[in-house]
């Protein structure tokens, strides 16, 4: 008689660490952590081949809570570390965790270059429109007029749209998720992982202490169906409780507009079909903002090209094949002479 070894079914718990999670109770980060752990399981990720790299901020504590390799680095610079890791070992699956302050303020420059180079990374930008860890100052995505300790009369800064920034930087994968839709977010992250090259995922994340309910107008449970549009490639961009609202292209204005099927002679044929390889459409979608428009979620743009790390190693491999790596001969290149 033999005993069959029990085959353990992979579970998100496999990616939990023994570390006590130190985010505020009710923080959106908990849900995102869960979504990431689900994506790791569903993608068949191996903990030993996975690395989480972060900068500084609330979101950047993330690596301590995933049972993979992790590197909690310095403020804004995670893309540099991640690039070095990926260049030395392209087989590693590298995730980058950052926030609106870390990734777009102090680290905006590095984010720009990681995206344009197309380093094979999954970049998750937790956008809560506030500095949490330093106790509530406004961030580069905060809305004008926001009163914070450093803007007692209200912020006069124009905010930045992370997804527009990413597209402008040349990102080949741009997506968006919400902390309140774990399943949807998890499948978006799965797509991000499958994508070779830099995948940029903006995640709306509620900061319960310093900027609570800032996304309430489209994340509130009762409103969500009417205020969120979840994109699917090749399908009509339609939403709403009755599934009758949709996006139509207005050629006179060169813009998207919300229409309702059945009103003003609008039919389903008028609704645009999502094409995630169309960069012009991606820009237009990223520009849409609630409340006039629904919050656009899911994969907005996905148009792969060879990744930076791949190109770097292709050149090295070619050089290795072409040239003989003889170190002593290297020291003797150029003019030499012999003294006897």
């Amino acid at each position: 008689m033999t005993t069959q070894p029990e085959i353990k079914k992979p579970s998100p718990k496999d990616f939990e660490t023994d570390q006590e999670v130190r985010w505020c109770p009710g923080c959106g980060d908990y849900a995102i952590l869960k979504a990431v752990q689900m994506a790791l399981v569903n993608s068949g990720s191996k903990p030993e081949n996975t690395v989480f790299v972060s900068g500084i901020g609330c979101s950047s504590r993330f690596p301590y809570y995933v049972s993979t390799y992790g590197f909690h680095t310095i403020h804004g610079r995670a893309p540099g570390f991640a690039t070095g890791i990926k260049l030395v070992n392209p087989d590693l699956d590298v995730w980058l965790v950052t926030g609106d302050g870390d990734g777009l303020s102090i680290g905006g420059n590095h984010m720009l270059h990681a995206l344009r180079r197309n380093v094979d990374l999954q970049i998750m930008l937790f956008n809560n429109e506030i500095y949490g860890l330093t106790k509530g100052q406004y961030s580069p995505t905060s809305r004008p007029g926001l009163k914070t300790p450093s803007t007692p009369l209200g912020s006069v800064d124009a905010p930045l749209s992370p997804c527009v920034f990413a597209l402008g930087a040349g990102a080949r994968f741009v997506a968006r998720g919400i902390d309140t839709s774990i399943k949807e977010l998890s499948s978006t992250l799965l797509r991000a992982r499958e994508h070779k090259g830099a995948s940029f995922v903006e995640i709306f994340q509620n900061c319960i202490v310093y900027n609570d309910k800032v996304f309430e107008e489209f994340t509130g449970k009762k409103r969500a169906k009417d205020t969120q549009l979840h994109l699917r490639h090749g399908e009509k961009m339609i939403f709403g409780k009755e599934v009758t609202k949709g996006l139509r292209f207005n050629p006179q204005k060169i813009a998207l507009e919300v229409v309702t099927v059945g009103e003003n002679a609008i039919t389903e044929d008028d609704i645009l079909v999502h094409d995630e390889q169309n960069r012009h459409l991606a820009f237009m979608l990223c520009e849409l903002e609630p409340p006039e428009f629904p919050a656009i979620c899911g994969v907005i743009y996905c148009h792969p090209a060879e990744s930076y790390d791949q190109s770097v190693h292709d050149q090295i491999d070619q050089a290795k094949q072409a040239g003989k790596a003889d170190f002593n001969a290297l020291l003797r290149t150029g003019r030499t002479w012999v003294v006897t």
């Binding site: 790299v53 590197f71 680095t73 893309p79 070095g84 890791i85 260049l87 590095h110 270059h113 090295i316």
Partner: peptide, 22 residues
């Protein structure tokens, strides 16, 4: 490169050292 040397001209001095630490 024939020696397998990897070089990365980073966007600035900070990214340069961070990539090396990575």
């Amino acid at each position: 490169k024939e020696f397998g040397v990897i070089t990365f001209q980073a966007e600035d001095e900070i990214a340069a050292i961070c990539s090396a630490i990575g």
